[in-house]
Simulated scan of single mutants.
Amino acid sequence: MLGNPKRLMILRALREAELCVCDLAHLLGLSVAATSQQLRILRGQGWLRMRSAGKMVYYRWNDESPLPALNAAVRGMCVETADEPD
């Protein structure tokens, strides 16, 4: 599940902010359809939440994720990234 680098990028991005599918697709360099497929997998595991606003679909990190270890791991990845020089 987490061996896919694109899924890890999604989790990392959504840990920081709520994003729409099109923004995530741009960030990942994938089509909207391919991004939606990855989001569907992560949401099915309970790691993400989504909301619709008209035709737009937004995803965010599920703070009540069923895996506390995942929450801690992604939080750690975000801290490591913040410490890296630009």
Score class of each variant (00 low, 15 high):
43 R>T: 10
26 H>M: 07
34 A>D: 15
35 T>H: 02
32 V>C: 01
25 A>W: 02
36 S>G: 15
46 G>K: 03
45 Q>E: 12
44 G>S: 09
48 L>W: 00
34 A>R: 11
30 L>Q: 03
30 L>M: 10
46 G>D: 04
32 V>H: 01
25 A>H: 03
45 Q>T: 05
40 R>Q: 14
47 W>K: 04
41 I>W: 06
38 Q>R: 15
42 L>W: 05
33 A>S: 10
41 I>G: 03
32 V>W: 00
26 H>A: 12
26 H>V: 09
37 Q>W: 10
54 G>D: 12
51 R>L: 14
49 R>W: 07
29 G>M: 07
31 S>A: 11
30 L>H: 07
52 S>T: 13
38 Q>H: 15
49 R>H: 10
28 L>C: 09
28 L>P: 04
37 Q>F: 09
49 R>A: 06
50 M>A: 15
33 A>L: 10
42 L>K: 08
28 L>T: 02
43 R>P: 03
47 W>R: 03
47 W>T: 03
45 Q>A: 14
43 R>F: 07
52 S>N: 13
35 T>D: 07
27 L>W: 01
47 W>A: 07
36 S>F: 02
39 L>H: 02
33 A>Q: 12
28 L>D: 04
50 M>G: 12
46 G>W: 03
44 G>H: 09
44 G>L: 12
26 H>D: 10
36 S>W: 01
42 L>Q: 08
42 L>I: 13
52 S>F: 11
28 L>W: 02
48 L>Y: 00
25 A>Q: 02
43 R>H: 11
32 V>P: 00
52 S>V: 14
53 A>G: 07
49 R>T: 08
34 A>L: 11
36 S>C: 02
42 L>V: 11
34 A>S: 15
37 Q>G: 06
41 I>M: 04
40 R>M: 14
38 Q>V: 09
52 S>D: 14
33 A>R: 10
27 L>T: 01
25 A>E: 00
26 H>L: 13
42 L>N: 09
31 S>M: 00
38 Q>M: 14
48 L>I: 05
30 L>G: 04
40 R>P: 03
29 G>I: 01
30 L>R: 01
44 G>P: 09
46 G>M: 05
29 G>C: 08
31 S>K: 05
40 R>H: 14
32 V>A: 03
47 W>D: 10
51 R>F: 13
25 A>N: 00
53 A>I: 10
33 A>P: 00
53 A>P: 00
39 L>I: 09
26 H>K: 12
51 R>A: 14
51 R>N: 10
50 M>P: 02
50 M>Q: 15
26 H>Q: 12
54 G>N: 13
38 Q>S: 14
